[in-house]
Write a protein that binds this DNA or RNA. Structure first.
Lengths: 163, 163
DNA sequence: TAATAGTTGACTATTTTACTAGGTTATGTG
DNA sequence: CACATAACCTAGTAAAATAGTCAACTATTA
């Protein structure tokens, strides 16, 4: 289990997706601008996420991405494991028969540590993070949130008007 | 908080150190051979660990490294944070005033997630891992361990004889 | 059929990782 | 004191991971 910026990008993007895709699919362009992540990098990440059955891509106009299942059924570890391809963190691969026993000692320890972190992140779902987000948003940035909502509504109205 | 192979190397080395430095300091050469980590890489890691006051270097013959405090007072997160220099995992550095609120939302969430992982690893000490190690070692590889000790003694005897 | 948006692959720059080579300094022992 | 030892330091380097670009292609909907 690795924990790097790559994983953070993926979690952030999935969180954005979960937050905005309730009504209709969300385009990567939207996520890219909102989260200031390069579009092409997002494409790479979502290519993996799609192959891991985390998201569903909808082509054509009005298309985009949506979650393949409920936000309460997607764990953070799912996301990280999907994008952070499983390189072997240990030198002695899979098996526990290293040269002289001693390396295996720490091997096992690290595997246990890694497992525990994964299990922990397994227990946190996108839904939980979303709820946390709601609380924090309401508590800390009510003002700016309202402004944002207004802006969002304006944007939608403008969108409707243009049609 | 990042979780990469670099951190694993450091934890492994510290674990080896804690395990062997009860009597006298342990040389990096010993750790390098036991854990099959390059000596110079270990030097780099221990340079950081020393500056972070995790270990004490003893120069000259019979020298080596020893823990600066008890194994029960060194947490895994201490070790990882010491070697994995603190690059900003978030785009919006330190402050929470990003362009449009929305990024900050996920920013906070990630910070929280990262914090929780750190807190978790904060709760695991070298001592705890050692105890785990004892159990596993005793249970699984008593034979090979004895053989190793014998080999180690042989090597020392040969060394003495050559002098 | 034209615009949209996903999908794919190849390619590039930067950073981090892991390691090498070569020194210098401090220190205990013969 | 000389010498071996081992920390300590500096610079460089190859490989990998990260982050991103570019361009072509395909499915879909209006």
């Amino acid at each position: 289990m690795r924990l790097t910026t790559k994983g953070r990008y993926a979690v952030t993007a999935m969180l954005d997706l979960a937050f905005h895709s309730r009504v209709k699919p969300v385009t990567l362009t939207e996520i890219a601008t909102r989260q200031t992540i390069s579009l092409s990098y997002l494409e790479q990440l979502f290519s993996r996420l799609r192959r891991a059955n985390m998201v569903i891509g909808v082509r054509g106009p009005g298309g985009g991405y949506k979650l393949s299942r409920g936000a309460e059924e997607i764990s953070i570890s799912d996301i990280i494991l999907a994008v952070d391809e499983q390189v072997d963190l240990t030198n002695c691969e899979q098996k526990s028969n290293c040269q002289n026993g001693q390396p295996c000692l720490t091997h096992d320890l690290w595997m246990g540590l890694s497992d525990t972190v994964r299990n922990y992140l397994d227990g946190i779902t996108l839904k939980q993070l979303l709820d946390q987000a709601d609380v924090q948003a309401v508590a800390q940035r009510q003002d700016s949130d309202v402004q944002q909502i207004m802006q969002f509504r304006d944007a939608e109205t403008i969108g409707m008007a243009l049609k």
